[in-house]
Design a protein around this nucleic acid. Structure first.
Lengths: 154, 154
DNA sequence: ATCCTTGCAAAGCATTTGCAGTCAC
DNA sequence: GTGACTGCAAATGCTTTGCAAGGAT
């Protein structure tokens, strides 16, 4: 029932390989940050990652969390999302999906699916000489918990 | 050949009305910021707005530029774009369009067109109970000036 | 043994805020 | 005249950095 020294935790191999191929080392801290990101869909801020991971690794510092997050992003194991209010959030999902952000509570939700290539191609056409490598799509609006009736009035 | 006191500059009426309907006042500073945003398509940062507007209004302060930009955004006369590197940029265009950002030089370009409603509806379907009011689409890649050949190698 | 990482604290930056003087209405 | 706006400077908040000690390979 207790931790037995975690011989191999979920996703550990993926992380090890990703780090190695980038010439970086596997550490407890990076593993904990990675594991947490994978386990949630709340798109936490660096500080939220810190608070949570700290429960498991009481000695970890906020600076290390930032460094770890940046490392994961660099390895393609996480995505950094930035918003107009200046907050940055991290997403550990790497499969193609998009986001929906509630304008009232700021929560970020996952949206399955992607835009048909045909449509992207059309858009691409209007920026001459631009080599497109990816895109980010984000819906904005109000989540179920944030009183949809208020919107009808406003 | 000189400024004659600018009785009515382009877009001034639009600004006046937008401000009024939000209970705010028309000022030289706001007008200058607005005029500059409208006149360019470079999606300037607050600091770039400051440097430019300053040439016309030497006494304006950076704080005022920030306040003016926020006011314009609040009135729907400008849009704030935020990026992962922590930089915020402003766009004075209000017609439907999207952006393409160069991963090398950071430049932001306009992309005409929009996603067919049909596709948006599909995406919307996957976030239950979410009331969608808008969306942001952004292409990422490399602009013409940023050596497309390097990409083929990498 | 090497050199990458961590943790700490200090530094950095973009943005925001408080306030007295000034200006738009 | 009144309340909103500006300019200044200090403050804030998130993120980064420098460095000595510790840890992974």
């Amino acid at each position: 029932m207790e931790k037995t020294g975690h011989p191999t935790r979920p996703g550990e191999t993926i992380l090890r390989e990703a780090l190695e191929s980038n010439g970086q080392r596997f550490t407890e801290q990076r593993a904990a940050v990675f594991r947490f990101l994978r386990s949630t869909d709340v798109h936490p801020s660096a500080d939220e990652v810190f608070s949570t991971v700290r429960r498991e690794l009481p000695g970890i510092s906020l600076a290390t969390v930032y460094k770890s997050l940046e490392t994961l992003v660099g390895c393609g194991l996480a995505v950094k999302l930035t918003y107009s209010d200046g907050s940055a959030r991290y997403d550990g999902r790497t499969d193609p999906h998009h986001h929906a952000r509630c304008l009232a509570c700021g929560r970020v939700m996952d949206v399955a699916g992607s835009i048909p290539d045909r449509n992207l191609a059309e858009l691409r056409g209007s920026v001459g000489g631009f080599h497109v490598t990816g895109y980010r799509l984000e819906l904005s609006g109000y989540c179920g918990s944030c009183a949809p009736e208020e919107i009808a009035i406003a």
